[in-house]
Write a protein that binds this DNA or RNA. Structure first.
Lengths: 228, 228
DNA sequence: TTGGCTAATATGTCTAGACATAATGCAAGT
DNA sequence: ACTTGCATTATGTCTAGACATATTAGCCAA
């Protein structure tokens, strides 16, 4: 039975955990390890590259590979389209378009997207329903200039879903916060004002500039789950 | 100038964005692409593997590679040790050990960790301070049986930090929720009761079984930021 | 001492070819 | 019609060797 890159990864990880190679230590080079395990250097490279991506080791050319002092845990969040998120919980999905207008965006919005002040943007407010009950209130500012084709009727296709497949997204970020429900949010989500809501704020940038800033106010009790 | 795997990845991504290869479509095999681009198949493989990890395409043996219908965005959350998190914000770090006792863990705790009811566990309550002000309240249930060596004095080294370097973590999960501050949390964090708090709940499992369940109640206004 | 050049070195990537593995579809037998 | 088994095929991985690139240590000169 010959060794694969996953075996190499496992063995290196074991030695790190066992403190054969303590935090901060320099571990043997790829050449040495490939000789020891009897595999090609590419195989060792693959194993070590994965460990570096996982934050367990740090690699630098010429300087070699060392065990990370304080391993940074990395968890992956999968951000599905809201419709699929709801369906995967075994609930029926539906949504209501509450607002759709073209106005000058407020300063905090343009600032976060890096657009000139008072840029005219499309404001969309969508209430996503799971099993007939409010699930998420989506408040979205959309930069019309960043769209390649004409947008559809957002009362038929949710903005959330259309954008995923029609925007050449390049980069973005998400932030989670806990906020008290505003009067409007409380009303729409069917909760008491001031209730603790999990809020996700996302900005996305495409090839044609900043695309959208969206605020997702989740119904009380919502959990965002991640695995690592 | 010869092409590298990042060039291949970029070109494939461009064609997907440009809808040359629309969602759901089968794209040419590695052999065909390597011929087209004039690179080795391994290079194409590396490029496509990265795209698959990013959720842009889906690969199956024999069935080939197709463009994902609904690309699932994947964001990565880096979970640093709280001390480093605070320091990286330019604030001084400190912590207080508020509680440390050995008791029978309540059912919800043992259930989530998959331990027998009423297992005796160590309960640790740590208040992390940033710039002298409350930052996070850490409430941790620790399974003594899952520790390989003897734990240190948690009044000197925070449990948060010691565990990272001394546990062979295998898997775990995190969930974020928004919750109103309990009387105790409000008191400790210096907020009004009922204030919306961002709460992170983590379970971790090591090679020697379930290790710990921790609840991090963040001070009001806390943001958890992720990039993708 | 300081600055900059150079050579050594570990990782990063590529190639060409090979075998392994999984999933599919077809064919044969019940 | 239904199942079983086999050949096919695309991806997954490995090898051995090569060249590229970043970084460091050491040396030399100002």
């Amino acid at each position: 039975m010959t060794l694969g890159w996953e075996d190499i990864r496992a063995e290196v990880l074991r030695r790190i955990r066992a403190r054969d190679w303590p935090p901060g230590a320099l571990i043997p080079g790829e050449e040495a390890l490939s000789a020891e395990f009897g595999v090609a250097r590419a195989t060792v490279n693959r194993a070590l590259r994965e460990l570096a991506e996982a934050g367990v080791i740090e690699r630098k050319k010429r300087a070699g590979t060392r065990v990370a002092e304080l391993p940074v845990r990395r968890a992956r969040l999968e951000i599905p389209v809201i419709r699929l998120d709801v369906l995967s919980r075994g609930l029926t999905y539906d949504f209501d378009l509450l607002a759709d207008r073209l106005t000058a965006a407020p300063v905090p919005v343009t600032a976060r997207l890096g657009l000139p002040e008072a840029t005219r943007m499309r404001y969309l407010e969508t209430l996503h329903l799971a099993g007939g009950r409010p699930y998420v209130l989506e408040s979205r500012w959309l930069n019309p200039a960043a769209l390649s084709g004409p947008p559809p009727d957002f009362a038929t296709v949710s903005a959330n879903e259309w954008l995923v497949t029609h925007i050449s997204l390049v980069s973005g970020d998400i932030a989670f916060t806990a906020e008290p429900a505003s009067a409007r949010e409380a009303d729409v989500l069917g909760a008491a004002p001031g209730t603790a809501l999990l809020v996700a704020e996302r900005t996305t940038h495409g090839t044609a500039g900043p695309v959208t800033l969206v605020r997702l106010a989740h119904a009380p009790g919502h959990r965002v789950q991640m695995v690592f």
